[in-house]
Simulated scan of single mutants.
Amino acid sequence: MKSQLTEAYNLLIEKLEGWFNLIITNIPNLVLAILVLATSYFVAKYVNKYVSKLVAKRVQENSITNMIGRLSAVVVVLAGLFLALGILNLGKTLTSLLAGAGVAGLAIGLALQGTLSNTFAGIVLSFRKKIQIGHWVETNGFSGEVMDINLKDFTLKEADNNMVVIPNKLILENPLKNYTLTTRMRIFLECGVGYESDLDLVEKLTKETICNTFDQIESPDDVEFYYTEFGGSSINYLCRFWIDAENALEKLRAKSKAIIEVKKAYDKEDINIPFPIRTLQFDNKLDFEMPEMDNKQFSNN
């Protein structure tokens, strides 16, 4: 029994001496690893601030700016950690960490597939110059002003003041019409005049009225006018012209103004804008009186 205790004691002392010698031998590497970790921590802080300022110049959303800054800081810290493990000759530990990180990343990615897709889509949308807060856009069946682009969703305010929240993934995968990217919009005005109207006068009057209504139209020749068909009660035409506008609301206002002014001009020149009339004619007499029944037949019943 004594010999076994002595042997165990000697093994313990030998093990402790080995560890002590190992620590003494690796003190320079340990100090260097600690310095690397500390340096990476402080560098990560400056990288976070610098990247956040750099991203803020192109992205208006604070949530996305902060997230990108923090991600850059995490990358710096992880790089310092891997470098420190390499200095300590812990290659196997480093390999295990990388393998574990890969498996964990795969599991998290599968579990949060929808959330991550919206997050990355939000980052991509934030860096697109053609989609900015304040633009008037139309997408996924909705039209309105872009109010917010964050890591989860895309917020629109429609013309009726309703807020529409759309997942970022749908914005990135579907077509988007941006009215703000151009300062000009084309107005389509369709109408009809009576068959007795002077068609040359109608065309001239319509062009002049549109030209005088909108300052951006320099000449009546800039207004397009085409007769399109002989309708059931009128000769119909299509009038097209360009205006300076950046959203659909300005386009609606311009079309409404054009309709008002054209109607006034037609009234002054006694130009008729006909509308369908339905005439109901009752020229047949309906007999609502019941025929007299034979008394004999009545008695038999």
Rank of each mutant, 00 (worst) to 15 (best):
L176R: 09
L172A: 12
L156A: 00
N247V: 00
K264Y: 03
D287L: 08
G192Y: 02
T155K: 12
F154W: 00
V76F: 02
L71F: 13
T183R: 15
A107L: 14
W242H: 08
P291A: 05
A56C: 06
L156Y: 01
L112Q: 15
R240M: 13
T95N: 07
A73I: 05
V164T: 04
S63G: 05
T39Y: 03
D215E: 14
E7K: 15
I166E: 05
F282T: 06
V146W: 04
R278Y: 14
I210H: 03
A38E: 01
L11Y: 13
G122M: 06
G102E: 09
K264I: 00
G141S: 03
E289C: 12
L156S: 00
G194V: 00
V59I: 11
S219R: 15
I271C: 04
K15L: 09
V124E: 09
T65L: 05
Q216M: 06
L252T: 07
E208C: 02
S126M: 05
H135G: 01
K255R: 12
T25S: 13
K285P: 14
E17S: 15
K285T: 10
Y9K: 09
L249Q: 07
I187C: 05
R58C: 05
W242V: 03
L176A: 03
I187R: 08
K251D: 04
L170P: 05
I87M: 02
T95G: 14
K49E: 08
G69Q: 01
V55E: 00
A245I: 02
N48C: 15
I210W: 02
M185Y: 07
K130T: 06
K53H: 12
G109F: 12
V47P: 06
W19F: 11
L12Q: 07
S233T: 14
I27F: 14
S256M: 05
A84C: 03
Y237Q: 01
L201E: 01
P167C: 02
L11W: 08
M185E: 12
L205C: 04
V103S: 13
L238D: 09
F142W: 06
G231M: 05
L125P: 10
